[in-house]
């Protein structure tokens, strides 16, 4: 029977997790293999976006509120006029 190595050290020390998330991309990496870990760019991007989700949500709300303001509505009107004036 093959048993994966899950405990770095069991006796005589505080238990340590066998896996830890990569600080760059959040992927679960076996502690004993962390030196060999290479981040996936896709995963790194998703992880960063997840960390910024509150800011992104706040930006969406601020942007929507701006577009409802007099100045935002005027800018929308200008943008629409410019779009219509372009040929094609």
């Amino acid at each position: 029977m093959t048993v994966k190595h899950f405990g770095v050290s069991v006796f005589g020390s505080i238990p340590q997790p066998a896996h830890m998330p990569c600080q760059e991309c959040g992927a679960s990496v076996p502690v004993l293999e962390r030196d060999e870990h290479v981040c996936s760019e896709q995963r790194r991007l998703e992880y960063r976006l997840f960390q910024l989700r509150a800011e992104l949500a706040a930006f969406d709300e601020l942007f929507a509120a701006y577009l409802e303001s007099p100045r935002g509505r005027f800018e929308l009107w200008c943008a629409e006029r410019e779009r219509r004036s372009k040929p094609g």
């Binding site: 994966k4 066998a18 896996h19 679960s28």
Partner: peptide
């Protein structure tokens, strides 16, 4: 939520 992946057994 942290967005971190975790493994347990």
């Amino acid at each position: 939520p942290t967005g971190k992946q975790a493994t347990t057994a």
